[in-house]
Computed example of a mutant assay.
Amino acid sequence: MALISTGPLDARPANQSLYRSILGKLQFAAQTARPDIAYATGKLAQYSSDPRAIHMDRAYHVLSYLKGTKDPAIVYHKMYQAPPRLLRGWSDADWANDPDRKSISGFAFSRSFNLLLKSAKQKLTATSTTEAELIAAFSATCEAVY
């Protein structure tokens, strides 16, 4: 999803109050049951102080995606119950996908039926995919130890 303006119509200001209201709903959905929209929601949040028509259009696009994919949500089954103290974690990173060449890292931890997700732009500029993955793994490890 490219959020760069492509013409003068995209530069029109959007209703900031409505945009923030939609963004709040998207963030709630991303944090509770739909982590698949977390990245898109994070990108949209970068424009919350001065949203434009293109950003509002993208927010409506994410809402229509949610409407069209109601069924694929996180569902916890009781078939497998990990020991309560077992913490399982995953980390991943993209490499230099942002215009400023910073990578985005993310991790997920599960413990019993609880899930913790986090995604953030890396502070360092990685020079390779391996370095970006190592930075993501290090961040996830620090969070797990904490």
Rank of each mutant, 00 (worst) to 15 (best):
T125W: 08
L115P: 00
A82Y: 13
D71V: 09
D94A: 10
L86N: 12
S112E: 10
L66E: 02
L26C: 00
W95Q: 07
K102Q: 13
Y19H: 04
E133W: 04
I4P: 01
Q27V: 01
R88M: 13
S17F: 10
V75Q: 14
A40F: 05
D94I: 07
H55R: 06
S91T: 14
S49I: 09
G68W: 08
L115Q: 05
A2N: 14
T32G: 03
K78A: 09
A96L: 05
A82H: 09
A126C: 12
Q16C: 07
I54W: 01
W95Y: 15
K78N: 13
Q31S: 15
G24I: 01
S64A: 11
S49R: 11
C142S: 06
R85F: 10
E133C: 06
Y60G: 04
D92M: 02
L117N: 08
I4S: 12
I135C: 03
D57S: 15
V145H: 07
F28W: 12
K78W: 06
T127A: 09
L23N: 00
A45Y: 05
K67Q: 09
T141P: 02
I37R: 00
G24C: 00
I37T: 02
H61D: 00
G42K: 02
A29C: 14
I4Q: 11
R20F: 11
